[in-house]
Design a protein around this nucleic acid. Structure first.
Lengths: 90, 90
DNA sequence: TCGTTATTTAGGCAATCATCGAAATATTGT
DNA sequence: ACAATATTTCGATGATTGCCTAAATAACGA
């Protein structure tokens, strides 16, 4: 879970998650939304992947990134445990 | 909000928040729960304070730290926006 | 005012992070 | 086999982080 919180600590990585929330995208498509160099972005992808927040699938020469909702929800639950919300309230 | 996510990225800082969730505590009381040096802990306090996650109040020679629930809830809302939960679901 | 307690600030150091350009790898089409 | 495209890995660099010890600050009581 620590890796998840560390992954969320960078604004670019949070923006990536936000984009993937709408739909899965290739690395190149994601890159169009940022001005930083591709190798830098690729590093961010790796952090998100290691945290389990995204999964990848190769499609020909492109690699599709998609959000891993189950880990996102686990993270949300962990955050709720911190914030004090019971998380089970009707 | 970026400062909040950065503050949450360190396990010691998350543990501090967890402790403060139960009750407000002085810096010294908090320090009893950790093995790291007090100046190091003091640095973590500063990060949490700058993020708005905690507030302080001096009581004589001790300084009381307490959780700032409103910021915690804002952070939770921001997280929900990422995780895709609508946050208003019954 | 002096000594004690609580906490923070200062200074230094090693490790990690974010970034880049260049090079490597993988896949597809010709 | 080669060229083109998509993406990652490598290697370097400057900035930031986390940690420590020592010193400074703040408040109190004798």
């Amino acid at each position: 879970m620590n890796e998840v919180f560390e992954a969320l600590a960078h604004p670019v990585r949070r923006e990536i998650l936000k984009l993937l929330r709408k739909r899965a995208m290739s690395a190149g498509e994601l890159a169009e939304h940022f001005t930083i160099a591709k190798p830098t972005l690729s590093g961010h992808f790796t952090v998100l992947k290691n945290a389990g927040l995204v999964t990848t699938e190769r499609q020909g020469t492109t690699i599709i990134y998609r959000l891993n909702m189950s880990v996102m929800e686990e993270a949300l639950a962990a955050f709720m445990a911190l914030a004090g919300s019971k998380g089970k309230e009707r």
